[in-house]
């Protein structure tokens, strides 16, 4: 089996007496989308924060490829090839869409301690950024301030920013949240197109999307992974149905189960 691009080994995190991450181990392998699902409060975002470095785990390790990055700051992990999106859209609102992406290009192309020369005039930055905007279908909105883009466009912009980092692996924190139907479809096809090149860890609430795009699914409940497997296996897993899918079934949304 190919070596995983991202692996978590025995991650633990407590907030006071509350154990929010409980001995979590999982892997993202080349070419796959590994989804993490779980009910609200299962600790999904906390997990993403620990992988990306915004939170430090109490125990356990995070590996990017073979490199232990557990003690690295978020920006160092980003430089090592880990890109992430945020559950609550996180862009630079006063910059244009193009500038947002160009800054991500700039991060991995030469020093940013350059005080002279217009950054907006650097063809290298702009053309690379424009290519990424095209990839997510946002090139016509390149000169629009990111703050006034629609919600779905901001989501797409986040993807373009992540792509511009040319990452080895991508963490997506509920990319479907708040996206309309069409935008959701676009995101799904984008993920499918990209996964061969950039494997992803997808944390998502939208079951339809998860079962469509994920190659493997892990189910997180109360900070603990209760099952990992192919989508069909997860659908059939009794513990999962009780813990999570059953909950939605009870609300009458039977098609997810």
């Amino acid at each position: 089996m190919a070596e995983p691009v991202l692996s978590l080994k025995g991650l633990r995190k407590n907030f006071g007496g509350l154990r929010v991450t409980d001995d979590v181990s999982l892997e993202v392998r080349p070419g796959e989308i590994h989804a993490v699902i779980g009910p609200n409060g299962a600790g999904k975002t906390t997990l993403i924060h620990q992988i990306s470095g915004f939170l430090r785990p109490d125990a356990g390790q995070v590996f990017l490829g073979r490199r232990d990055v557990t003690r690295l700051a978020p920006e160092k992990r980003a430089q090592s090839g880990l890109a992430r999106s945020f559950q609550i859209t996180s862009i630079l609102p006063a910059f244009t869409a193009l500038e947002n992406v160009a800054l991500a290009v700039q991060a991995r192309s030469g020093s940013s301690f350059r005080f002279f020369g217009k950054a907006s005039g650097e063809a290298g930055l702009n053309s690379a950024a424009m290519a990424k905007l095209e990839e997510v279908g946002l090139s016509e909105r390149a000169e629009v301030p990111a703050g006034v883009l629609s919600h779905g466009e901001k989501r797409a912009l986040e993807c373009a920013i992540a792509l511009a980092m040319e990452p080895k692996v991508m963490l997506l924190d509920e990319p479907m949240a708040g996206a309309g139907h069409d935008e959701g479809q676009r995101l799904i096809s984008l993920m499918q197109r990209l996964k061969a090149k950039i494997p992803m860890l997808l944390v998502e609430h939208d079951m339809d999307a998860v079962f469509r795009v994920a190659d493997r699914v892990s189910v997180l409940v109360y900070g603990r992974i209760i099952a990992t497997g192919a989508p069909d296996e997860i659908r059939a897993d009794r513990a999962v149905r009780e813990a999570y899918l059953g909950e939605e079934q009870a609300t009458g949304d039977a098609r997810h189960a």
Binding site: E75, Q79, S90, R114
Partner: peptide, 27 residues
Amino acid sequence: MIVGSRFGRVLQGAKQNPQRMQAIGFN
């Protein structure tokens, strides 16, 4: 000149959203 430079962009990015800047690789 400084404001329009690469450096200036990073400075303004950090003003708008330091978390985003870290996520793309800038401290």
